[in-house]
Design a binder for these strands. Structure first.
Length: 215
DNA sequence: TCAATGATTGAG
DNA sequence: TCAATCATTGAG
């Protein structure tokens, strides 16, 4: 996490970045910075875990649907898609693919700044839940990302207080694609995780990793 | 109109 | 292991 004045903000990733194959966008977002304006102050986090959702995926909200909340997945690439899950948590996605083609990348985990990470390691019980960003629901809560506030907003401009920028280069070898064997909607589906090698991945992905190692 | 479901998380 | 908690979906 980092703070910066408005005039020093880096250029947001543009429409062309999102107007591509969803899985490529998911991989390329790893290591990028997520910028959020809270209380007039800009902060940034590094993206360490993403998940791609494509139109042909039964787990995708737009699978055989184009109305309701799924309509947002067909929006202009670079649009924020925020939905509520389990009645308690919001999840942030970046819409991908050309206009009228469904696709989105779920942001699953962000790397906290060094102070927060160190504090969490030394005093786990003092690690405020409000600061945790390892998990899609957690990061949305920590960054005040809600459906009402962010759904449908353009991520290609700092105007709405939320955007992504290029980050330090990430060696391809550090990008990991994980899979999970599980049942979703009656089908065996792969997970679509692309993550950096670090401990700040989501609970779900840690489970997937341990299950994989157990095989 | 209504019951079932889930891209999650935290408590016990 | 399981409850919290509700928008969305699909069946009736």
């Amino acid at each position: 996490m980092n703070t910066q004045n408005f005039q020093n903000l880096p250029p947001p990733l543009g429409t062309a970045f999102y107007d591509r194959d969803t899985r490529l966008v998911a991989q390329d977002l790893l290591g990028c910075l997520l910028w959020r304006r809270q209380g007039g102050l800009w902060r940034s986090w590094r993206i360490v875990e993403t998940e791609a959702y494509t139109q042909d995926d039964p787990a995708c909200h737009a699978y055989q649907r184009k109305k309701g909340r799924a309509a947002m997945l067909y929006a202009e690439p670079g649009t924020a898609y925020v939905y509520m899950t389990y009645g308690m948590y919001h999840c942030l996605n970046a819409v991908t693919e050309p206009l009228d083609t469904a696709g989105a990348v779920l942001i699953r985990a962000l790397e906290p700044d060094a102070d927060v990470a160190q504090g969490a390691a030394q005093h786990p019980k003092d690690f405020s839940a409000e600061l945790r960003t390892n998990g899609p629901g957690r990061l949305a809560r920590a960054l005040d990302i809600t459906r009402d506030a962010c759904n449908g907003q353009l991520l290609t401009t700092p105007e709405h207080g939320l955007f992504f920028s290029a980050g330090p280069p990430v060696p391809e070898a550090l990008k990991i694609t994980t899979t999970r064997i599980g049942i979703s909607k009656g089908t065996e589906l792969p997970w679509r995780y692309y993550e950096l090698g670090n401990p700040w991945v989501s609970v779900r992905n840690r489970q997937a990793e341990s299950e994989k190692q157990a095989l």
